[in-house]
Design a protein around this nucleic acid. Sequence first.
DNA 1: CAAAGAACCTGGCGGC
DNA 2: TGCCGCCAGGTTCTTT
Length: 274
Amino acid sequence: MPELPEVETIRRQLEPLLTGSKISSIEVLDPLAVAPASPEAFKRRLRGRAITAVRRRGKYLQLELDTQDTLVIHLRMTGTLTYLQLPMPKEERQRLRLLLHLDNGAGLAFHDTRRFGKAFILKAGDSQRYWARLGPEPLDSSFKAAYLGKILDGRTRPIKSLLLDQAMVAGIGNIYADEALYRAHIMPTRPAGDLDDEEIRRLTRSIKATLKKAIDLQGSSIDTYRDSQGRKGSFQETFQVHRRQGEPCPACGTRVEKIRVGGRGTYFCPICQK
DNA sequence: CAAAGAACCTGGCGGC
DNA sequence: TGCCGCCAGGTTCTTT
């Protein structure tokens, strides 16, 4: 579920709450959440550590530690991170995978219904290599039409599949790929290498504008996404096409269609997008 | 090497 | 009401 805007929303909320606080103890309720590390090894590297910074790269949240290690968390489809006062009410321990106790009496809870989410410790020496796997941040100034044009060149995959490839651009997922392509008036199925310069410029601008607006609205809550205080985002109320099959296109009134692209449900306006 | 498909999990929903 | 298949915001491994 959570894409760049959702993870950034959580990051902004947690940064002032976590920076400078110390992890006093750790509960690993689901070993799968920290696998392939053992719960013991995971806890050993975290216990007693202070959090020095809260950052984000793509859809990954990074809690930097005073050891120079980083606690990395990926929420995948259904993960949530909640900041709360301890002890937790019993009913909130449903589907709890991980709980960090902080020295100020608060806790950071990682819930995850589908159990795809992961938490792991990245050692300082492995950091550079690990993050180099990802493409640039789409909101950075380094993400320009010239870069996008270069990576699209010669590729036959649908443009949407390429936007979802984290090695090309980091942080875009199914929601924002659909919304950005609609905004750029480009069909999700277009072979990436066929886009002309004007379309590439339009797509670059659309990606940035869509993600910025989504951050302003605290992300999208279709089903399970919640921020660090358990609240929903509101960008879903502004969806133009995503999850709106059969409803009218906001621009021309034509019914929004749904197809499958790269195995993912894909929504578009057959008139406005070329 | 690029691209497509399956696998990893759980739960909700529609159809029968 | 019960069972079955399909679908879901993501990533990674395998196959073609």
